[in-house]
Design a protein around this nucleic acid. Structure first.
Lengths: 206, 206
DNA sequence: GCGATTCCTAGAACGCGTTGCAGGTTTCTG
DNA sequence: CAGAAACCTGCAACGCGTTCTAGGAATCGC
């Protein structure tokens, strides 16, 4: 595990007041997203409420999407910590994976507006957000891998090729069914169902 | 097959000049998206080049996302037609599915800018676009199902539950890996690879 | 401690999606 | 064919993401 930096940035280290500012901006963005969704996260509003100039906000997060995906990353990191404390339950691989993914979904589904805002940003296809998107996906992939193999081999070296691929596919299904949900194409129950189906198709008995 | 309407709208029938207008708007939107991507599809520009008032454009397509997803629907319908003429090749289910999905991807990958624009719109989560998004997903699902079972039983009544679920999962993987591609998270080759992996995991030999 | 550099603030300004409005034109109804 | 209704046009106006500028504040190198 990395020494002390919990909300790390790539490369550069931030001074204390800078970490504070960054934290405030993310916090305000999260709150506004929870309360009013994508449209309510207005850059001017975030800057004002975080007591920061608009230009500063843009210096830390070069776009609205970047800001929102960063907020999601924070949430998923929190989820990861909770899972480290209370790992997935269940006898076999499939049960554990379904348990973990269902728990992850509940967190999002409790906050539809927030989910819409961040998932939309995740899928916006802005090139400059790519690094953060990759982090989010890696984080989620790691969570799934950990559910498949909770033996604690941190680097996952012990995992077979097949298991790694299964985790990858599940990650895709996760994102995509969330997209279908936030778009009103599917109900929120079908996110869980699709993930369970996919899991059983790949890990369950034929 | 439905009588004569090829570019149908839900319920209402359009007069000839209206169909023409609709066609022009979609055509211009597609061209602008191919040439310059999401940002180049400006509502004023589309209206001007399609020789239509801005208000009229909004009457037909209540948002930019709606317009772009409709353009995608048109393309996928075209793909469906091509596939009807020249069905998927390959001995077993897995090979046929991979063939079809690879072909579908090539069409998109040849036009990165268009792909970014439409996929982004597909995932924007705008509730008013939901009906069109559903159509796109159903269309794609149908294409996959047809690849699994090319026996021609149009309604798919002969298909087992498992096959239906596999098609659903593949549809999710398709969208999600496209999202990863347009976001610059993955290279374009990995879209094909992920789809092939998922297909083999579910339809191939264990 | 002091100049240089980087960071932060306040706010104006631009571009584009979206909406609203005042008329003219086409299409429906009887 | 007359009147009504729906549709279309041209254009002004609003809101918000993003960029830019000018100047003050903090930080770094020596």
């Amino acid at each position: 595990m990395v020494p002390s930096s919990s909300s790390d940035r790539s490369g550069v280290t931030l001074t204390k007041p800078q970490q504070d500012r960054r934290e405030r901006m993310l916090h305000v963005a999260t709150r506004l997203a929870v309360e009013g969704g994508f449209d309510a996260v207005q850059m001017r509003a975030v800057a004002n409420e975080a007591e920061v100039a608009l230009g500063t906000l843009y210096r830390y997060f070069p776009s609205k999407e970047h800001l929102l995906v960063s907020a999601l990353r924070q949430q998923i990191q929190a989820l990861e910590q909770r899972l480290a404390v209370r790992p997935a339950v269940g006898g076999d691989e499939a049960a554990r994976v379904i348990d973990v993914l269902t728990r992850a979904n509940r967190a999002l589904q409790r906050q539809h507006r927030f989910a819409v805002a961040v998932i939309r940003s995740l899928a916006a296809g802005d090139e400059t957000v790519a690094p953060v998107v990759r982090e989010v996906r890696d984080l989620m992939g790691g969570i799934i891998v950990a559910a498949i193999d909770p033996s604690g081999s941190t680097d996952g070296r012990s995992l077979g090729v097949r298991e790694r691929l299964v985790a990858e596919v599940l990650e895709e299904v996760w994102l995509s069914s969330l997209v279908a949900w936030i778009g009103g194409v599917d109900g929120q129950a079908s996110v869980d169902r699709k993930l369970a189906d996919a899991t059983m198709l790949m890990l369950g008995p034929r």
